[in-house]
Design a protein around this nucleic acid. Structure first.
Length: 431
RNA sequence: UCCGCGAUAGCUCAAUGGUGGAGCAUCCGGCUGUUAACCGGAGGGUUGCAGGUUCGAGUCCUGCUCGCGGAGCCA
């Protein structure tokens, strides 16, 4: 008897096979029982007729509870009515572990209950589909950069200094050196990498101790940050749009089944093709005014503002030249107009907001020193970073893409917490 | 941190200030093609915690705890 997976059933029609998995769902009708098996690769209905199997096997099928782990043997049958197209005419059933009273039933549950049971919730169809898409997005990210001559060069997670104020940093004791902080961004280290390798990217978890309590925030999330030497803001935008197009089109092509399970309207994703609209901050402000939004020039956009702006377009929109005041110290200012930073945010459609933030970096030592002073940052903490401008400084640019926001957008999720296996939220760090 | 909402059976919810219910889950019984199957029956409650008002509080009032939605901030 051949042991196979549910995803391989199509190659074994008419043959008797053995599947290992968990009981996902059960229906019975007197002398016939329908056991839906899941094995991580898919779902298949196994049909047990009384008479075709021994009474003992039939009793097991009757008795075992949802999520019991079992070994099923039977003949593969094509069944147009079955989801997936195949069904198992079962001949045998063995128990690996019998269980009862599994907490997550086929009926609806509240979000608190589901998050308390996240370790079990992950077994459900929808969550499995999301994790598959997440995995494919991660692979697409790596394939894209690897294929373009980038080197993966990860940044440290424990960092020595409170760079942009301690209020949003997680602090931890660090032996005799006092405190260390969980990284908020690998960018400064990526810049060092770009000066060594030309094109690099960091990809890992980042941490923000912001007391944010919205569907768009996690305290721990994953970010990919490419950094390119000899690249200006336009090069940065070129890279960002090619990157996003590649991710979305790849997932559309390869995770069709999962997006269907998630009931994602993929027509909106089909549009994600170059070129993306590029608008100046001033144009974005005009759009807000035209739509009756009260907005003070010079401010950053809020979530609602971003939605209004992105609704004007059928694909991601790149907003560039933000007022320098609201942007980070390391962003280079526009030599034509010092009020603006050479920065870009990419706003996803359908209200998903900012998924990419990037900029051309300040490469002049003296200007950077001035910015550090203006932001009341401790220069000593940045001496290593300033060295990058002392020894062979070049124009360079990069951006950061939030993985969970991207997954959330592609999957059409209501909340970021479903886009990561074990979400960390302001009032939750379990399981 | 601020604004708003909520906490009742394992889960999702209902209950005019007057004997706390339903669906699902569980258990028992029925059904040879079910798709969140269906039909009949049973068990299951310190109504988040602490006070108060009242003849009487799940319901009204005060405080607390926990959670949810949003804002600000950000990816």
């Amino acid at each position: 008897m051949q042991q196979i997976t549910i995803s391989d059933l199509k190659n074994f029609v008419g043959q008797e096979v053995t599947l290992y998995g968990w009981l996902y769902h059960k229906r019975s009708s007197g002398k016939i029982k329908f056991l839906v098996l899941r094995d991580g690769t898919g779902y298949v209905q196994c049909v047990y007729f009384k008479g075709n199997v021994s009474d003992e096997i039939f009793d097991i099928a009757d008795r075992i509870g949802q999520e019991s782990s079992i070994i099923v043997t039977g003949k593969v049958k094509q069944e147009p009515k079955a989801p997936g197209g195949y069904e198992l005419d079962a001949t045998d059933l063995k128990i690996i572990h019998e269980t009862h009273d599994y907490p997550i039933t086929p009926k609806e549950h509240g979000i608190e209950f589901l998050l308390d049971n996240r370790h079990l919730w992950l077994r459900s169809k929808r969550q499995v589909a999301i994790m598959r898409v997440r995995h494919r997005v991660v692979k697409a990210i790596r394939d894209f950069f690897d294929g373009k001559g980038f080197t993966l060069m990860d940044a440290p997670i424990l960092t020595p200094n409170a760079v942009e104020g301690t209020s949003t940093l997680f602090e931890t004791k660090y032996f005799d050196l006092g405190s260390a902080y969980l990284t908020q961004s690998g960018q400064l280290y990526a810049e060092a990498g770009a000066m060594a390798l030309g094109k690099v990217y960091t990809f890992g978890p980042t941490f923000r101790a912001e007391k944010s309590k919205t569907r768009r925030h996690l305290t721990e999330f994953w970010m990919v940050e490419p950094e390119v030497a000899f690249a200006d803001l336009n090069d940065d935008m070129d890279l960002a749009e090619e990157f996003l197009e590649y991710i979305v089109q790849t997932v559309l092509k390869e995770k069709e089944e999962e997006l269907k399970i998630l009931e994602r309207d993929t027509t909106k994703l089909q549009n994600v093709k170059r070129p993306f609209p590029r608008i100046h901050y001033n144009e974005a402000v005009e759009i807000l005014k035209k739509h009756g939004v009260e907005f003070q020039w010079g401010n950053d956009f809020g979530g609602g503002d971003e939605t209004v702006i992105s609704e004007q377009f059928d694909r991601p929109v790149m907003v560039h030249h933000y007022p320098a005041e609201v942007k980070a110290f390391y962003m280079k200012r526009d030599p034509q107009d010092e009020r603006f930073a050479l920065a870009v945010d990419v706003l996803a459609p359908e209200g998903y907001g900012e998924i990419i933030g990037g900029s051309q970096r300040e490469d002049d030592l003296d200007i950077l020193l001035k910015r550090i002073a203006e932001h009341n940052l401790p220069q000593s903490a940045f001496e290593w970073y300033l060295d990058l401008r002392r020894f062979g400084s070049v124009p360079h640019s990069g951006f950061g893409l939030g993985l969970e926001r991207t997954v959330s957008w592609i999957c059409g999720l209501e909340h970021l917490r479903e886009a990561i296996p074990f979400p960390r939220l302001i009032y939750r760090n379990t399981p």
